[in-house]
Write a protein that binds this DNA or RNA. Sequence first.
DNA 1: AATACATTATCAAATAATATATATTATTTG
DNA 2: CAAATAATATATATTATTTGATAATGTATT
Lengths: 106, 106
Amino acid sequence: MQPDPALLRTNACAASQMLKALSHPDRLMLLCQLADGKERSVSELETLTALYQPSLSQQLGVLRREGLIAPRREGKQMFYRVADTRALAILHTLYQQFCAETETTP
Amino acid sequence: MQPDPALLRTNACAASQMLKALSHPDRLMLLCQLADGKERSVSELETLTALYQPSLSQQLGVLRREGLIAPRREGKQMFYRVADTRALAILHTLYQQFCAETETTP
DNA sequence: AATACATTATCAAATAATATATATTATTTG
DNA sequence: CAAATAATATATATTATTTGATAATGTATT
């Protein structure tokens, strides 16, 4: 599936760095709320995830520095959206694997 | 995409635990070698990844305890294969996103 | 200036990573 | 059968990183 060992390592490092950013429940919840590609304000995210505000901002900072999300300021509010198509692809797979079956079907 | 906040958190925790296991270059390289669903012996994996044996065994141990891979003994050798379909799905997405474009095309 | 919203700084506790040493299990050989 | 070897696993020690909580600070609007 991957012939060149040096390239394998390079790619594995890149991928695992992104996975590291994803592998935190709070950060993953945040990204789930942005997985539709639309943007959300920080206060919306605060409501949706029920995270304590400084933690929220802290985790958004991690995602921002990794380039996974991008900010846009509008007055006093900050809006974030997913800024990395690779992350978006992973999020969709995660949704299929971890959420699709556990959906609340009335 | 995900209405119930409690369920969101539950799923996010499950997913991030698996991602944590994936988000290490050595472990990811190992899993890449098993991503075709076939099994490989530890010594094969040692050759393929050029990892120092105790590290290799240590990382295999992490993956095994997380249930991502399953062992089979055959004489003195141990064979491992991916034992989790969710992990397999994630690995395929990762391959598409991080390896597909960088393929060595002669 | 006051208010609401958002970010940064600090720091102890918990976890994870890396390297080295040692142990286990099974086969082979004398 | 006992000793040697091979393949893999575990233990340990050290260092580095991450987490989680709280306090302090910054920024824009009213």
